[in-house]
C-alpha cells in the first residue's frame, strides 16, 4: 500500500510538471508578454521599449531557462540596469543584491508576484483556495448525502412510484443550470419581489464570517445542480444490485427489506457512484465560477477568471498547479477508497 501511494505520488509530480510546462509555454507566448509589458508599463511603448522592458524582467530568456527559474532549479536572472541598479528574480524590492538567494522558485516556496493584485501568488492562492474550500465543503456535505439517499431510495424498488418521483426530481435538478436556479433562488428567498427575505442574495460577507443567512443560497444552488447527476448514477447502480442473485439469496434467507438495502445492497451499490463523487471535487473547484460571480463570493474560480483576463502569468501558473494537484489527489483518494469498498480489488 505504501509503495502504491509513493508510486502514485511520483506520477502526480510528473503530471504536474508536464501540465505546468504547457501552461507556462502558453502564457509566455510573445503576444501575451507584449500585452503584459504594455499593461504594466505604458500602452504607447515602442517595440524596442517593450523588448527592453521584457528583457529587464527576465522574460526574454529561452523558455526552458525561464521554466527552470520558475521551478527553482536554475538560478534566478540578474539584470544590471544602465544606472547600476541590480534587479533580479530573487531580489525583493528593498533587498541588497548580495543578500538575495540564488534560487527562488516553486521548490523554494516562492511562487512569484501577481501583477493584478500586487501581492505574492502564494498569499492570494492560499486565501482564495481557503474561501472556495469552505464553499466546496458545505456543498459536498449537502450534495453527497442528499444524492445518495435520493439514488438509493429511487433504486431500491425500480419502477415504483417513489422511483419515478425521485427520478423526475433528480433529472429536473440536473437540467437546471446554476445561473438559472441561482437567479430563481435569489428572487424567491432574498428579494422583495416575493417577500420571503430569509437569506441574503450576496455572499460577500461570508468571506469573513459564514452564517446561514449569507451562505445557504450559494451552497444550495451548486448542490442541487450536482446532486441530480450523482443521484442518477446511484440509482442505476442500485437497481442493478437489487436484481443481483445475492440479493435474492438474502431475501430468501429471510432478511427484511430495510436490512437487505442497508446491509447487502448499499456497499455494492456505492462502488460506481464513489468515482463520480470524487470527480465532482475538481469540477467544484473551477465550476463554482458562475455561482461565485453570481453571489459575489471572491474565491478560487473568481481568481482564475481575474488572472486569465488580465494575463497575470505567475498567478495563472499558481492556480493551475493547485488545480492539477487537487485533481490528482482526489483521484488517488478515489482509488484507495475503491479498494476499501470493493474487496475484489486488492492492492499488492
Amino acid at each position: 500500500m505504501g509503495l502504491f501511494i509513493l508510486r502514485r505520488l511520483g506520477v502526480m509530480i510528473l503530471t504536474a510538471l508536464c501540465l505546468t510546462f504547457i501552461v507556462f509555454y502558453l502564457t509566455n507566448l510573445y503576444p501575451n508578454l507584449e500585452k503584459l509589458a504594455k499593461t504594466q508599463g505604458n500602452f504607447r511603448m515602442s517595440d524596442e521599449a517593450v523588448q527592453s522592458w521584457l528583457g529587464a524582467r527576465g522574460y526574454m530568456e529561452p523558455l526552458p531557462v525561464k521554466y527552470g527559474e520558475w521551478l527553482g532549479v536554475l538560478p534566478g536572472y540578474v539584470n544590471e540596469a544602465d544606472d547600476g541598479k541590480i534587479t533580479g528574480r530573487c531580489i525583493a524590492v528593498n533587498m541588497a543584491p548580495e543578500d538575495a538567494p540564488t534560487f527562488c522558485g516553486v521548490i523554494q516556496g516562492y511562487w512569484g508576484n501577481s501583477t493584478v493584485f500586487k501581492d505574492s501568488v502564494w498569499n492570494i492562492v492560499s486565501k482564495r483556495l481557503g474561501l472556495t474550500g469552505w464553499l466546496m465543503l458545505a456543498v459536498m456535505m449537502v450534495m453527497v448525502p442528499g444524492a445518495l439517499i435520493l439514488g438509493v431510495l429511487a433504486g431500491m424498488r425500480e419502477g415504483s412510484k417513489l422511483d419515478r418521483t425521485l427520478s423526475t426530481v433528480s433529472i429536473a435538478s440536473t437540467a437546471t443550470p446554476e445561473y438559472v436556479s441561482g437567479v430563481i433562488f435569489i428572487a424567491l428567498f432574498a428579494s422583495s419581489a416575493v417577500g420571503l427575505k430569509w437569506f441574503k442574495g450576496t455572499a460577500t460577507s461570508a468571506m469573513d464570517d459564514i452564517t446561514w443567512v449569507n451562505f445557504t443560497l450559494p451552497v444550495i444552488t451548486i448542490a442541487l445542480y450536482g446532486m441530480g447527476y450523482i443521484a442518477r448514477m446511484t440509482r442505476a447502480s442500485m437497481t442493478e444490485v437489487m436484481t443481483a442473485q445475492y440479493i435474492r439469496t438474502a431475501r430468501l434467507k429471510g432478511v427484511s427489506f430495510p436490512n437487505i438495502v442497508l446491509k447487502h445492497a448499499l456497499r455494492n451499490a456505492l462502488i460506481a457512484p464513489f468515482t463520480v463523487i470524487m470527480l465532482q471535487i475538481p469540477w467544484l473547484l473551477n465550476g463554482v465560477v458562475i455561482v461565485e460571480t453570481l453571489f459575489n463570493y471572491k474565491g478560487f474560480g473568481w481568481t482564475l477568471v481575474q488572472a486569465a483576463s488580465n494575463n497575470d502569468i505567475e498567478l495563472l501558473l499558481g492556480v493551475s498547479v493547485v488545480s492539477v494537484f487537487v485533481v490528482l489527489l482526489t483521484q488517488l483518494i478515489s482509488d484507495i477508497g475503491y479498494v476499501y469498498l470493493n474487496p475484489r480489488i486488492r492492492i499488492s
Binding site: A244, T249, A250, L252, K253, G254, N268, N342
Partner: peptide
C-alpha cells in the same frame, strides 16, 4: 419461514454470495 424452514441452494454459487460481505457475516446472519 424463508431461510429458517425452507432454504435454497442456487445454481451459481459466486453470484449467490454477496461479494462485499465476509462469509462469516453472511452465515451468522441466518
Amino acid at each position: 419461514i424463508r431461510g429458517n424452514e425452507i432454504a435454497m441452494i442456487y445454481q451459481e454459487p459466486m453470484a449467490s454470495l454477496n461479494p462485499a460481505m465476509k462469509i462469516g457475516k453472511q452465515l451468522m446472519e441466518v
